[in-house]
Simulated scan of single mutants.
Amino acid sequence: MSTLENASAVLKLFAHESSSLPQQGLSFSDVASRLPLPKSTLSRLLVAMEDQGLLVRNPANRLYSVGELLLAVGGRQRAKPLTDVVAPTLTALTDEQGCAGMICLLEKDYVRIVSVFNGCPHRPASYSAGHRLPAANTAVGRALLAGYSERDVIDRLVPGAAAHASFSQHGLTGLLQRLTVVRRQGWSYARNETRPDQSALATSLTHPLRNERVGLCLTFPSLSDGNAFPQHLLTRLISVTRMLAEKIGDPGWRHR
C-alpha cells in the first residue's frame, strides 16, 4: 500500500470508530492492532500525519485524535448544504454517461426536483427544477422513502393515498414490499411510471450531521427488452453514491 493509502486507512479508524473504542482517541496500540503494518512503518506514518495536521497527539495520555486541518475542512463541509455537495458529482456523472439527472428532496408525500442536469443536449430532462412528483410513484421517491421506517412511510402517504396512482397500481402493501427491496439493495428503478418510454435509476444520501436527505436520479430512454436497464448506469450511480456517502459519513452506505 502507498503512504496515502496507509494514511487513509488510519483516518478511517476514526471515521468508523465504534463504541468499543476509546472515545477520547486511539493509542498507538489501538491503531497497530487494526492495521496490517509493521510497527516501524506505522510509527513513521503517525509522526508524519501529526506533522501535517492530520492527527494530533495528547501529551498527557498519548492518544491520537483527528487534527485541526481535518476539523477545519470538515467544518466547512458540514456548513455546505448536501445538494451543493452532490451537484458537482452528478454533473460529471451525467456528462460522462450522456443522460439526464436530478437531485430531489422529499416533501411529505411528494418529491421536489431541486436541480436538473442535462448530460445529453439531444435528450433533455423531462422535468425542470421546482417540479413535484408523487413520491410513491417514482424511482427517486422510493429511494428517499426507503430511508424511513414503514410506520413513517405510512404516516407520510396514507392521508393522501387517494391522490396517488401508485396506490391503485400496487397498493400500500405492494409499495412497502418494494421499499424493503430498495433498502436491501440500495437503489430504486422505475420504468415508464411518470413518462412513457422513460426509465429512471435512483439512490439517496443522508447527511448525519446536517440531518439532510437527498435523492440522486438518472433518467434515460426505456430499453425495448422488458424490465432491463443499462447495467453500467447502475454501476456508476452506486459507485458515486458510495463515494459521496463516505465523504459525508452516511452510515446507511457503510456496509454496502
Score class of each variant (00 low, 15 high):
2 S>M: 00
3 T>F: 10
8 S>A: 05
10 V>Y: 01
11 L>D: 01
13 L>R: 05
16 H>S: 04
16 H>V: 05
17 E>N: 07
18 S>C: 06
18 S>A: 13
19 S>K: 10
19 S>G: 11
19 S>C: 02
20 S>W: 03
21 L>N: 05
21 L>C: 03
25 G>F: 05
26 L>G: 08
26 L>T: 02
27 S>W: 03
28 F>R: 08
30 D>C: 04
30 D>M: 04
31 V>I: 15
34 R>H: 11
35 L>G: 02
36 P>M: 09
37 L>N: 02
38 P>V: 04
41 T>L: 01
44 R>G: 00
44 R>H: 08
45 L>Y: 09
45 L>V: 03
46 L>P: 03
47 V>C: 00
51 D>V: 15
62 R>N: 07
66 V>K: 05
66 V>P: 03
69 L>I: 12
72 A>H: 08
75 G>A: 09
75 G>H: 12
77 Q>K: 14
80 K>F: 04
82 L>G: 14
84 D>G: 03
85 V>F: 04
88 P>N: 12
89 T>G: 02
97 Q>K: 14
97 Q>N: 04
99 C>Y: 05
101 G>P: 01
103 I>R: 04
105 L>K: 07
107 E>C: 06
110 Y>G: 00
111 V>F: 10
112 R>F: 00
115 S>G: 00
116 V>F: 05
117 F>T: 05
119 G>M: 07
121 P>I: 02
122 H>W: 06
125 A>S: 14
125 A>D: 05
126 S>D: 12
126 S>T: 04
128 S>N: 10
130 G>T: 09
133 L>P: 10
135 A>R: 01
135 A>W: 11
142 R>F: 10
154 I>Y: 02
157 L>R: 10
157 L>P: 07
159 P>D: 06
160 G>T: 08
160 G>A: 15
161 A>K: 15
161 A>V: 07
165 A>F: 03
167 F>A: 09
167 F>D: 03
169 Q>L: 11
172 L>Y: 06
173 T>V: 10
174 G>L: 13
175 L>A: 13
178 R>L: 12
178 R>A: 14
181 V>M: 03
183 R>W: 14
184 R>Y: 08
184 R>G: 02
186 G>W: 04
187 W>E: 12
188 S>Q: 07
192 N>V: 00
192 N>H: 14
194 T>W: 11
198 Q>W: 12
198 Q>I: 15
199 S>T: 11
199 S>K: 03
202 A>P: 01
207 H>W: 12
209 L>P: 00
209 L>K: 11
210 R>Y: 03
213 R>L: 11
214 V>P: 02
215 G>F: 05
218 L>S: 13
220 F>Q: 06
224 S>C: 09
227 N>S: 07
227 N>M: 08
228 A>K: 05
228 A>C: 15
230 P>I: 06
233 L>S: 10
234 L>M: 13
235 T>E: 15
236 R>C: 01
244 L>Q: 01
245 A>M: 05
246 E>Y: 05
247 K>V: 03
248 I>C: 13
250 D>P: 11
250 D>Q: 11
250 D>V: 10
251 P>N: 09
255 H>F: 11
255 H>G: 06
